[in-house]
Amino acid sequence: MAEPLDKAKIKEAVIRKKREVYEPVKPDLQLGFIHNNVDCIGCRACEIACKDKNGLAPGPRFRRVMYVEGGKFPDVYAYKVNMSCNHCAEPACLPTCPTGAIYKRQKDGIVDIDSSLCIGCRRCEAACPFGAPQFIPDQNIVSKCNMCVDEIDAGRKPYCVMACMMRVLDIGPIDKLRDGTHETKARGPNDYIVSQVQSMADPELTKPSIVFIPHSKGAVK
């Protein structure tokens, strides 16, 4: 059995390590999502597949399809934005965690959470600019999308991607998704890619690993 932790020892170590700072992990490869805002029909199959995979009750949603509608007749528009955890290059959730429950994988940049280490302080939930960490009220812990790491490690794609009948959601190396060199059905031959859409938090905060095929009314940059 492991030795019980000595609080005084920890405090001493804290003083010794004082002024050390957090440095984000620089992964060998950064996986990310691509979502086609225009061709998505908002069926929410991805949401349900995610909830099914993760055994989520009605409240928390790791993935969310957001309906965006606007304009004035006759210039009206509608499109969908689909986001879960964006597995940011420099995630805000990770440095907030006091127990080390959140970590970023070196090999593919996936930001995973071991909820069994979570004490429910909910700092990650507050810090994430994209609302990814989800509070599980009956357990007083937080959980979130981990891009289905078990599927990734088994050579498959996440449940949300597999469930998308329109093929508008996909994953891939984010640098290749950004420069358009990654082969994916989510992007058509004349589509262009943006990193931010209307109403989305500033990507400079955490550098999220997601790109979009935007609607003409939704593109930012």
Partner: peptide, 23 residues
């Protein structure tokens, strides 16, 4: 009124956890 858990589900004690910024 909400409090953090005394221990995480795996037994990590809140009282013995310190984040880098809590130094």
């Amino acid at each position: 009124d909400t409090k953090v858990r005394d221990k995480s589900p795996a037994g990590v004690a809140a009282a013995q956890s310190v984040a880098w910024y809590q130094t």
